[in-house]
Amino acid sequence: MSPLGELVQKVRSKNAGPFWLTIDIFCGTEAAFEDVRQRLDTDKVAARLGANSQDLKRFDIASLNVIKISLPRPSVQGAVDDRDMHGASWAALISEMDI
């Protein structure tokens, strides 16, 4: 088990409009991409984000060595219970996840 962030180049999270969040895992190399794509459990990612795994869309993009995960925002952007207007910090939660 290692934190995802130690296996990859960078994890980024951004809004994809006010109602969606998207997390891009830049693996950096083909070897890291293959390793992470096999070890990264989508259900665990969903649990970590407090989301339902059936709501997650996952794209394993070999040409970029990127794994992209998109989901309806845990709180709609700017709602009273939203803590992060730009969806910036979710990357840290995923980067620190042991896989």
């Binding site: 409009g17 869309k57 794209f59 993009i61 970029l64 998109s70």
Partner: peptide, 16 residues
Amino acid sequence: PHTVSAHMLYENSDPF
């Protein structure tokens, strides 16, 4: 090619 194609990921829920 990498920086350009990677921009399709940016703030987009579906990269394709």
